[in-house]
Amino acid sequence: MYGSKLLTTMLILLVMIPVCYASYIPQSFSLSDNYYTVYGGPELDAVIAGESEFERGDDVYLLIDIYNYGKILGFDSDKTPSNANEIALAQIEKNYEEGVTTAIGILATLENPYDAPFDIKSPTQSVGSLRGGEKTHAPVEFELKVYEDAPAGEYTLILNLTYEYQKNVEISGTPNMPEVNFWYDDEVTYIPIKVKVKKEPLFEVVSVDCDLYPGKKSIIEVVYKNVGEETAREAIARVSVVDPFSSIDDQAYLGDIEPNGTATAIFKLKVDSDAVAKPYAIDSEIKYKDEIGDTKISDIIKIPVEVKQSEGGIIPIEKIVVVIGIVIGIIIGRYFFKRKFDMGKR
């Protein structure tokens, strides 16, 4: 367990480091006309701009601002200008070299390498270019679906940013008609994005007790369990029925249900006389107050039930035994009565 946590921590730290692709010198780049080598480049980071904590089952948009903190760290002189033309060309190159901090054509992809309980619905987003010191004009949006059964807690998603940057510039020609050659490299930066699933009650049905027959009224006893992390206060369960059921009493007060606690609801239903004997699922939901007193309604909770064959359709074995006993009794009685009657005649 400890080794797994350590490995995850190391991976998260590693993804924060920009990764350069293989670098190839352009054919137009001679290096003999290069006056300066510039140190520095883009430095991208990302911050959540809106909500970062969501409820189970939510369809949400995660808003992310992207910043470029890139700076020029220094210059090296590769070639000393020897005349006025070269001095002018060197100055032109230096001006172009300041573009080294610009991240060009940024593409943002939100990834889920650690199997967080989210479904990322948005594809790769085009962000454009960011100069050093700039941020996105508007947050980048990613649509997420939080799993219905997501455990509460903090999770890590990864923002994958790929872009080009200007690695070097070479100037030739004359100051009036300079020939500018650019050398671009590809780079990718991985940024961890922390999101949370909110602590809240979560319900499931743990047992159902009922006897349902066509044309009959019946009581359904349902035991709910709070498998979430917070107490559900003043909880009320309610069923929503469709054919072949109709409700007589469709609500039940459950009270406060603590985490891992249970509560029993009793509903009164009637089954249509023409109901088919088979398994069904009845929709239910629980209305409750959360920790700060706000009223919440749970997702639909299915109650599995079964309508059994009508009691009039198949005679229970007990009744069959009683009937057989009565018939045998009648036969034996008639036998002894007839025998006594015959003996009297003699």
Rank of each mutant, 00 (worst) to 15 (best):
Y39A: 08
P244E: 07
A275F: 06
E43M: 12
K79H: 00
F118D: 00
N83T: 00
T264G: 05
I66A: 07
G228H: 10
A275W: 11
T174L: 11
E200I: 11
V222F: 01
L202S: 06
S52H: 13
M177D: 14
E55V: 10
G333M: 11
A108W: 02
A116Q: 06
L11F: 12
I330E: 04
H137R: 14
K121I: 10
G153Q: 09
I48Q: 04
A275E: 07
E98D: 05
E179A: 04
D243P: 07
E258R: 04
V227N: 08
K308W: 04
W183M: 01
F267E: 03
I330F: 00
A90L: 08
I219V: 12
G128C: 02
G344V: 02
G293K: 04
L107I: 10
G153A: 01
I48V: 15
N226D: 03
V140M: 13
E291V: 06
S129E: 09
Y61N: 07
K308T: 02
E204H: 00
P42T: 09
T262M: 08
Q166P: 04
G215N: 11
L254Q: 03
P192L: 02
D65F: 08
V208Y: 10
F267V: 00
C20F: 15
E187I: 12
E134Y: 03
N95T: 13
